[in-house]
Write a protein that binds this DNA or RNA. Sequence first.
RNA 1: GGAGGAGUAGCGAAGAGGCCAAACGCAGAUGACUGUAAAUCAUUUCCCACCGGGUUCGGCAGUUCAAAUCUGUCCUCCUCCA
Length: 378
Amino acid sequence: MEKFYFELKHVCKQSGARYGILHTPHGDVETPMFMPVGTLATVKYLSPEELYEMGSQVILANTYHLWLRPGEDVVSNAGGLHKFMNYKKPMLTDSGGFQVFSMSKTRKIDEEGVHFKNHLDGSPLFLTPEKSIEIQNKLGADIIMSFDECPPYPCDYKYMKDSVERTLRWAERGKKAHQNPNQALFGIVQGGDYEDLRKLSATSLANMDFDGYSIGGTSVGEDKETMYRMIEYAIKYLPSDKPRYLMGVGSYDSIIEGVLRGVDMFDCVLPTRIARHGALMTSQGRVNIRDKKYEYDLSPLDPKCNCYTCRNYTKSYLRHLYKCDEGFGKRLLSIHNINFLLKLTKDIREAIKEDRFLDFKNEFFEKYGLNVKNPRGF
RNA sequence: GGAGGAGUAGCGAAGAGGCCAAACGCAGAUGACUGUAAAUCAUUUCCCACCGGGUUCGGCAGUUCAAAUCUGUCCUCCUCCA
């Protein structure tokens, strides 16, 4: 793996948070970073140009979903994901492991892999660690994931132990199957809130020497303190010279708490999904744009925001678009939320470089009225 | 002028003596959403209230222990015929 490497540039003297650069075949990106999710080879409602303008670096796509539609060969035929969807910056694909969790009612796990019931037509599907890697090789993202089981929370010890051990065997198989030297492969730490299992998972993966390490099995229903503990259990046993990716986390408080614990990468559907549903992250806390109180409100979503939406549109108009179910509204709201998190991570990087991340965190939490019991600041 | 049909909550529309403050859809009001089966899901919408109570089904008058539902009458609308 020549084209991909992680450069840990600075550790905040005040907090221990990390600033780094991820070198990839599609350019260098700075960490900590937030990665918008584009499951079906599109960040819903947003163009690549809009993403660049906001400072987006890496974006995600999904193995399971692209495997079904349009099929990895269609993407490969187009020259890979980047060319297929015209995204010129680095990309990352998830392995399908999250679908083991999100579609748990319609799948069966065995040692060999996972039997899914195709959610589109009901047909049987079988995804294995090797198959997931093969698909991801064809999709051609810069960073790919091991196929894992994302277990639920809560989860009893026996089940979790078996699951973690199986996921480790799958990681080994996937690593062996990985053929494309231009793609970095990450292992995924599991183990729920059991410290010994997180330790087992993290140390075993570290011994396999992956290009980076993901922390999975979080934000699946546990409370925030538990999630932060899971992160600590995992990171404690991960090498510091490799990137750490906290999967599926994207609320602003959790990003800050994650960075504080040594996380470099985050992804989440939250900003785009809640935007489509009318909820916005702002410096005033959460705004539900549907609410009647905004009917005549000519102010921007967030007076402190400089995104395209806030520069040009009023709450009154955004509410109107939302209530009429207009696509342009979903786009404007998505722009705002993505911008909010990209700006947040940019500010975080600056604070780390200047050794004041702890101050930054405290100020942010104070300003937003945030605490663990009131993570949104209301 | 004659014959037939219809008026139910903001709108559409079920209900044809008690289980009806009245299904369902839409619209409205809120909430949720964390590696996207998510333009989804949940709650709520006659009035006042904590239990609970008070007014409703075009109007009025009846029948009945009991009426949105049956009878009479009036009003409004639609269709057809003159």
